[in-house]
Amino acid sequence: MTIEDTKSGHAATVDRNAAAAIDVAHLVKFYKTNCAVDDISFKIARGSITGLLGGNGAGKTTTIAMIMGLTLPTSGKVSVLGCAMPAQSAEVLGRMNFESPYVDMPMRLTVRQNLTVFGKLYAVSDLKGRIAQLAEDLDLTDFLDRASGKLSAGQKTRVALAKALINAPELLLLDEPTASLDPDTADWIRRHIETYRRSNNATILLASHNMLEVERLCDRVIIMKKGRIEDDDSPEQILLRYNRTTLEEVFLDVARGRDREQAP
């Protein structure tokens, strides 16, 4: 089945029959006796944008950390771009990247220095050209030589996104990419994410609390609660199933334990 990119109306396509960009099978994660992720399975098609929704402690960040190989699962399997994680992580880490509010760019280094270091880590060819391109795309040119720690929240997010795009990743993992940003900057970031996916046919997995963001960007939504998958479908189908007009209402239904039958 091929799903046209109806969100943007552009040519990027999502082929669910192609080998999945992310394949998660019976993933379980216990922190001591606390079950953070409880037997979840899903596949994410290449070229798609998938939203991972859920309240605090739902297991989103742990799931993303296991996909990246930063956290080891208690049981279950994760495959990324055809490679088993973390066993074959060396094969695939150069083809993916991420942005998260849980990590920072080194504050004393200038934006250019930070991008240079990460560009070299990812062996980006024509690094100066790539940095110039990203600076232009993400409007960083005016503060390329300013220390990263002296930037505003919006500027820092753009720099973090530039770092996440430095290697033109096939798979981009974004954890709360617009958290604590003003609406204008957040909208700007979303537009750039959409543009990047379109122009690179990249796969994006996005964890967010912002329902408007998810409705706007995502082809598919996975809703998590207490470490389990509560629902998994396109935003339109989920809205129909819960008989709601916005994902925010669906989110509240799920968070407050109102199931599909109880919803109006």
Binding site: M68, G69, L70, A90, L93, G94, N97, F98, S100, Y102, V103, M105, F118, L121, Y122, A123, K163
Partner: peptide, 8 residues
Amino acid sequence: LGNLMMSP
């Protein structure tokens, strides 16, 4: 550290 450990 997260940035580094997630890199190659």
